[in-house]
C-alpha cells in the first residue's frame, strides 16, 4: 500500500540558516488495512514524512510509493488530518466537512448528504451549522476527521491529530479512531510523539530516532482487535509501553 525505501530529505536553508537534514534514509512499509503508528521525539521529522506521503513536499532521494506508484502530489486515495485542525473559520461544520467534495465539483445536495452522514458518525449531531470557533478543540478535530473521511480515501494520514487536546478528549477521539478503523478497514498511518497513543492505536509501532530520522525499530504490538476497553491493564500493553519509553529515553539522552 505504502512503500518508502531509503527516503532522504534535507530542508534547504534560506541563506541565513544552514540546511537541516531531516530524513536520513527512512524505510517504511504499510500493508492494506493496517494501522501503523510512527513514534518519534518532537521535531524528529515525522511530520515531514507524512507531508511527503500527502504530496505536499518532495524528497531528495529514495523511493516513496503508494499503490506502487511514486507519489507526485496530493491524491484522492489519501486524506490528511492536521495537528492544528486547519478548518476554514468562515465555513460551517457542514461546509468544512464537504470541502474536499466541493473541490471535486460534487453537487451541493450530494455533499450535504455526505456531510450529514459523517456528522452523525463522528458524533457532532446538532452542530451542522456551527462555525469552528464555536466548537471545542475535540469537536474541531472531529470535523477534521470527518472532512478526511468525506473524500473516501483508502489511506488516512494522521499528523499528531490529538496533540493539542486535553487527555480526556484525547482518549475519546482515540476510541473514535479505533472504532472508525475497525468499521471502515481503512489503512491508517498515524504520526505521534505519545508512547501511549502509539501503543494504544497501532497494529505496528515504528520508532524513529531524533533528527535526521531513521527507523530504529519496528514492533508488531500483537494486541487484539478490536481493542478491549481495559487494554490499559493488559500486561503486553504495559510491557510494550515500558519498552518504547526506554528506547525513546535512550535515543533522546544521547
Amino acid at each position: 500500500m505504502i512503500s518508502i525505501v531509503g527516503c532522504r530529505k534535507t530542508h534547504r536553508g534560506d541563506g541565513r540558516q544552514p540546511p537541516v537534514p531531516v530524513l536520513d534514509g527512512v524505510d517504511l512499509e504499510v500493508r492494506p488495512h493496517e494501522f501503523v503508528a510512527v513514534l518519534g521525539p518532537s521535531g524528529c521529522g515525522k511530520t515531514t514524512l507524512l507531508r511527503i506521503l500527502a504530496g505536499l513536499e518532495g524528497w531528495d532521494s529514495g523511493e516513496v510509493r503508494v499503490h506502487g506508484r511514486p507519489v507526485s502530489g496530493p491524491g484522492t486515495d489519501r486524506a490528511l488530518v492536521f495537528q492544528d485542525f486547519a478548518l476554514l473559520p468562515w465555513a460551517t461544520v457542514t461546509d468544512n466537512i464537504a470541502f474536499g467534495l466541493e473541490l471535486r465539483g460534487v453537487a451541493r445536495a450530494e455533499r450535504t448528504a455526505v456531510a450529514n452522514r459523517l456528522i452523525d458518525r463522528v458524533g457532532l449531531n446538532g452542530f451542522a451549522r456551527h462555525y469552528p470557533h464555536q466548537l471545542s478543540g475535540g469537536m474541531q478535530q472531529r470535523v477534521g476527521l470527518a472532512r478526511a473521511l468525506a473524500v473516501e480515501p483508502e489511506i488516512l494520514l494522521l499528523d499528531e491529530p490529538f496533540g493539542s487536546l486535553d487527555s480526556l478528549t484525547r482518549r475519546g477521539l482515540q476510541e473514535d479512531v479505533l472504532r472508525l478503523h475497525h468499521e471502515t478497514r481503512k489503512t491508517v498511518l498515524l504520526v505521534t510523539h505519545s508512547v501511549d497513543e502509539a501503543a494504544r492505536l497501532g497494529d505496528r509501532v515504528v520508532l524513529l530516532g531524533p533528527r535526521p530520522a531513521r527507523v530504529i525499530e519496528t514492533i508488531e504490538t500483537g494486541l487484539p482487535r478490536p481493542r478491549p476497553d481495559d487494554i490499559g491493564s493488559d500486561r503486553r500493553f504495559v510491557a510494550l509501553k515500558e519498552h518504547l519509553w526506554n528506547r525513546l529515553k535512550a535515543l533522546t539522552s544521547r
Partner: peptide, 8 residues
C-alpha cells in the same frame, strides 16, 4: 496546505 492536500 490543507486545500492542496485535498487536491485544490
Amino acid at each position: 496546505d490543507m486545500a492542496r492536500a485535498f487536491g485544490a
